[in-house]
Design a protein around this nucleic acid. Structure first.
Length: 501
DNA sequence: GCGTTAT
């Protein structure tokens, strides 16, 4: 048995209340309430097996009282605050986690992992051991967060129960598909079933009303489809033991998926107050951090990283000053493509769907083999473009921020910011603000798991200059300039980044 | 701006 708590949970979970709740289809009137919900869930009921909780510990000001630190690997800068008296020991090996033999086989044979990464070593004991407290976990891009929650879902599922027991919600279709693939690979020998809940180009698929209820033990998907499946009673929530939000800061941000996410959380809570909630992301700005801490149960555990320590040292950042918009294309094809030909794959990020199309056309017309992806494409087309890139059939992919977060392709060594990411605020603002979180996530598409990488930020006017220097200040990093027409500068940059001999 | 359901 991989996990003693599986049987324990069965005895401690309350019987499901009568299902007399109305479905979402007819409760649009609850929207305002859901949108304004800022208080923590009122039903923070610990499972009957939990030791006495020191809830006060969580409400303290972190600056006044030193947090309890776990044993801290030398180069780790993850701050852990644990709730109550439960001692957690960092896992030096996967064996330390009491995983099933089938799961260990998945980790070693299928995934080829050797030992837990830092975030895995620290977070997995918190996720897997009773009393299964909620967890907010921040860790660097490419540091192995997916494994944390995938392993958490796989090992908390009771294989003998054929009903959804783990649910993971992701901001994009691509990320949901990727996470499903990771789970299937890692769980290959466990026999655990899974379903990916993302929209499909209707034609071939049965309308939702005619479909059988989901029996898969793990469901991973995007908010709209998950909401729909729940509201049509095709996805039961009563047996859920673990709920995961990937890219949780975006999933709970005001301009993100906050309403959908809270709606789903509340629906699950109605039937199932003991469901463990995991929130994972590389970024949590102060506003969303404050909010998410009030969204999960009070006795949650948390892991955070200081923003100054969040940039990846292995990925070098550069800026190129371009005299006009058109010269950005020249820089890309004449310098970055020429010199970066053999450095691996490249993602070029743009701000709008339209510029993705235009840049794509320009480069294709000039004879370059590039593809592009953005949300206006058909689902099938999106899947095809991603597959071709994953298979290495394309070297250069132009993308909107649909791929800014989570997209894991280890051969990506070069990221080009054709446009810098900007924050949109509802109000009129004096000045453009960079979207620091998106910037960091884009950078994180290179340098997966400690690999080398470089980012070229294309700057062309005063607005870009200001955005760039704000980004430098925010992360306390220096972004050195590569002169637009200096082959030597590009070479030196790629050498410094470790991508060129 | 970008992202996310389908009737």
């Amino acid at each position: 048995m991989s996990e003693p708590a599986a049987t324990d949970d069965k005895t401690s979970s309350p019987p499901p209340p009568p299902a007399q709740h109305k479905s979402w289809a007819d409760e649009a009137d609850d929207d305002a309430e859901a949108a304004n919900e800022t208080t923590a869930p009122t039903t923070a009921v610990p499972s009957s097996s939990s030791p006495s909780l020191n809830v006060d510990e969580l409400s303290i000001d972190e600056n006044k009282k030193p947090p309890k630190l776990l044993d801290d690997p030398e180069d780790s800068n993850i701050q852990a605050v644990t709730s109550g008296d439960t001692p957690y020991t960092s896992a030096a090996t996967f064996e330390d986690l009491n995983l099933s033999a089938e799961l260990l086989r998945g980790l070693y044979v299928e995934m080829r992992f050797q030992k837990p990464s830092k975030i895995q070593a620290i977070s997995l004991p918190m996720i897997l051991n009773p009393p299964h407290r909620d967890l907010i976990a921040q860790a660097h891009n490419g540091s192995g967060k997916t494994t944390c929650f995938v392993l958490g879902m796989l090992s908390r599922v009771d294989p003998s129960v054929q009903a959804p027991q783990a649910l993971c919600i992701c901001p994009t279709r691509e990320l949901a598909i990727q996470n499903t693939e990771v789970l299937r690979k890692m769980g290959k020998h466990t026999g655990i079933s899974s379903e990916c809940a993302v929209p499909t180009d209707s034609r071939d698929s049965l309308p939702i009303q005619k479909r059988e209820p989901i029996k898969a033990q793990v469901v991973i998907g995007t908010p709209g489809t998950i909401k729909k499946w729940i509201s049509f009673k095709k996805l039961g929530v009563t047996r859920l033991k673990i709920l995961v939000f990937d890219e949780a800061d975006q999933m709970l941000a005001e301009d993100g998926f906050k309403d959908d996410s809270l709606r789903i959380m509340k629906e699950i809570e109605k039937f199932n107050s003991s469901c463990q909630v995991l929130l994972f992301s590389a970024t949590f700005n102060d506003i969303v951090k404050n909010f998410v801490e009030r969204t999960v149960k009070k006795d949650h555990n948390k892991l955070f990283v200081k923003k100054e320590e969040l940039s990846l040292d292995a990925v070098k950042q550069y800026k190129v000053r371009c005299p006009d918009e058109l010269s950005k294309i020249e820089v890309i094809k004449d310098y970055i493509f020429e010199l970066g030909e053999n450095v691996g794959q490249t993602i070029i990020f743009v701000r709008t769907r339209q510029s993705a199309k235009m840049l794509h056309k320009s480069l294709v017309d000039m004879g370059y083999e590039v593809t592009s992806i953005q949300g206006a494409l058909d689902h099938e087309e999106r899947d095809k473009i991603v597959k071709e890139f994953r298979d290495g059939l394309t070297q250069v992919l132009i993308s909107t921020d649909v791929l800014a977060r989570g997209f894991d392709q280890q051969q990506v060594n070069l990221v080009i910011n054709y446009d810098l990411p900007i924050k949109h605020t509802a109000e009129y603002t004096r000045e453009f603000e960079p979207d620091y979180e998106v910037y960091l996530h884009r950078v994180g598409r290179a340098g997966r798991f400690g690999r080398k990488g470089a980012v070229f930020n294309l700057i062309y006017d005063e607005k870009d200059e200001r955005l760039m220097s704000k980004i430098e200040n925010h992360f306390g990093t220096r972004v050195s300039e590569v002169r637009e027409k200096s082959v030597e500068d590009y070479k030196a940059a790629l050498k410094e980044a470790g991508l060129l001999q």
